[in-house]
């Protein structure tokens, strides 16, 4: 039993890695006061560019770089029209979602279902042999290690550095920042682009590691929406958002398990089930937050968070 639990936990860590990148990228973006709704399409498009570049060069690392650049480009389009031209960020993001998705299918169709390079597990020498913890944490591909590292890094950056303070204050009060000599629009553009790069990495993490290959469907459709929901219900806090991503990974692994236990139920149900379950788990947490006075909800109340004050609003600087 001990073995199977650690194998399952390792599976959760691996399947959640791309979601960690996407959700934390979006956290960074939204903390700066910008909504990047294009996640679902941007992940697919960067999954495609990542796979195609890796295939062309024969190495996965240029693929990851190309994916990050793709995610960043999408973010630049969003900030160009959303931040600088003052259009609704939700509208731009929604249009980009579909444009990116269809662009990915259109440009990627010649590479559909072809073999390509993929990232393999690299066990860390001594640590991987540790009982129980070893296989869970130290027997993965580099991108999974990177997802482990990203969580504390982003948390430290946001809450313990001067740049992080600037990031948060731009999201809360752009006018105040402007008065203090910090250009809010430029700062927002930078962090939207950085968040976009992380979202791009999430795409490559799918097509080059977690669900290797490209096709229609690729298998990461819908993840972008989950990442968006995680950010909101995770209270815009990187640690809580990451926790949510792992819970979703657990649900996905549980789906595979239940499929073996109940062969009579069609497998499609188990593939779709984690999505509504996750959203409704988050909604229930969200609903119970409104009753903070009840003692039973005190733990949940600890999880509450408020959105950045200026989220989605365009700051008009003179």
């Amino acid at each position: 039993m001990d073995v199977s639990v650690s194998v399952l936990a390792a599976g959760v860590a691996a399947t959640s890695a791309p979601l960690i990148f996407a959700a934390l990228g979006e956290t960074l973006t939204e903390k700066a006061g910008v909504i990047n709704l294009s996640l679902d399409g941007a992940i697919l498009l960067s999954a495609m560019t990542g796979f195609v570049t890796a295939k062309a060069t024969g190495s996965v690392w240029p693929g990851f770089a190309a994916a990050a650049v793709t995610g960043m480009t999408v973010a630049f389009v969003l900030s160009g029209i959303g931040i600088w031209l003052g259009q609704s960020q939700v509208a731009v993001g929604f249009a980009l979602t579909f444009l990116c998705r269809d662009l990915a299918y259109f440009l990627g169709s010649p590479y559909s279902r072809t073999p390509g390079p993929q990232l393999l597990a690299v066990p860390i020498p001594v640590l991987a042999d540790l009982p129980f913890i070893g296989p869970i944490l130290f027997n993965h591909s580099q991108i999974v290690y990177a997802s482990f590292a990203l969580i504390p890094l982003l948390w430290y950056f946001m809450f313990n550095s001067r740049q992080g303070l600037i990031l948060r204050s731009v999201g809360e009060n752009p006018e105040g920042c402007w008065a203090r000599g910090i250009p809010p629009k430029r700062t927002q553009t930078i962090y939207t682009a950085l968040g976009g790069a992380l979202i791009g990495l999430a795409g490559a993490a799918y097509s080059l590691a977690v669900k290797p290959g490209w096709g229609r469907p690729q298998g990461c459709e819908g993840i972008g929406w989950i990442a968006l929901a995680l950010v909101i219900f995770g209270g815009w806090h990187p640690l809580r958002v990451a926790l949510g991503a792992y819970i979703f990974g657990m649900l996905q692994i549980a789906g595979i398990l239940f499929q073996e236990i109940f062969p009579a139920i069609p497998s499609q149900i188990f593939q779709v089930a984690p999505f509504p379950l996750m959203i409704f788990a988050l909604v229930i947490i969200h609903l119970s937050r409104n009753k903070k006075d009840t003692t039973g909800f005190r733990i949940i109340a600890l999880l509450s968070g408020t959105p950045p004050m200026a989220l989605g609003k365009t700051h008009e600087q003179e």
Binding site: L85, A91, A95, F98, L99, D102
Partner: peptide, 16 residues
């Protein structure tokens, strides 16, 4: 999916 690309491009350019 080219049709979706055209539709998306039109909406995005409208916003622009």
């Amino acid at each position: 999916s080219l049709s979706g690309v055209i539709q998306g491009a039109c909406v995005l350019s409208a916003l622009l």
